[in-house]
Design a protein around this nucleic acid. Structure first.
Lengths: 146, 146
DNA sequence: ATATTTTAATTTGCATGCAAAATATTTGCA
DNA sequence: TGCAAATATTTTGCATGCAAATTAAAATAT
């Protein structure tokens, strides 16, 4: 009987894997239209909320890996979306600042969430909220230090 | 008001992104112990359930990208976990077959699910089931052809 | 004041995820 | 029968995610 625990269809991790990949794939088309990858979009959302933050703050907000983030920020700098500026008071730190171009992109991204939401025909607002809540618990449980 | 839809904390996609990455990270330690990556573990689970299946069936079961799967199977062949055999009746197809070594690995993997489950202190069985159900709807909605 | 430790980022190496192009076969149809 | 269309996989190129090592600068301790 315990062997059934290894069945793929019973694995929460595999459901999450499929769901996460599926939704990232769903974003691909609208994001390609504005020349962003998904992680780049996450960075933009973080900065549209609060600009001029350090890399550490950006990592905290986006949960993107620091090593990957350095590369992502380079590409976004090349695309003239943002600037990476050395902090005058603490030279270890970098401040990320949107360019005008980067700020303006928000207008083009504004309707992406609703486009994605259109694809969820089987899920009502309550279920979506439930999902958010439980995922929040999952993330917290898994990231507890011990 | 609509601008708030772009807030990161309200994005289902970002919750899924974090949850999926967190859980994959949680598997890393026990899987490293038996020399598997997460996608490789998924392939093994699929094969422990049903051996001698084609690549297409494996893609269907695991939802792993075909291009990536080719590379993954190569590495798993090198590790003597499985064999890739040409189908005699249809030379386009390949059959994946576990080696004895690959079959035996199941015993070492058998307690991984419970180890992971231990980390979920805030989630009861009912919530886990709810999560599975809603994620299932998410995946189905997002993968509907149209 | 100087060595040690800590903190903030970057770099490196490996393993995917994914779209698009390329290969190899098999099917289906004129 | 012969060839175009459909299938099954592989290959290629790009963008992460992640752990570990490295670099640079600030904070602390003695």
């Amino acid at each position: 009987m315990p062997f059934e625990q290894l069945q793929l269809k019973n694995q929460l991790c595999h459901r999450l894997y499929m769901a996460s990949n599926s939704i990232a794939r769903a974003y691909r088309e609208p994001l390609t239209a504005i020349n962003l990858t998904y992680p780049q979009y996450v960075v933009m959302m973080a900065l549209w909320e609060k600009d001029k933050i350090t890399i550490a703050e950006l990592i905290d907000k986006t949960a993107i890996d620091g090593g990957a983030l350095t590369q992502i920020l380079k590409k976004m700098t090349d695309k003239n979306l943002l600037e990476v500026i050395k902090d005058k008071h603490d030279k270890r730190k970098r401040l990320i600042k949107l360019t005008e171009n980067g700020q303006a992109l928000k207008l083009k991204a504004i309707d992406i969430p609703s486009k994605i939401r259109c694809k969820f025909n089987s899920i009502d607002a309550e279920q979506a909220q439930q999902l958010m809540s439980i995922l929040d618990l999952v993330v917290k449980d898994l990231n507890k230090p011990e």
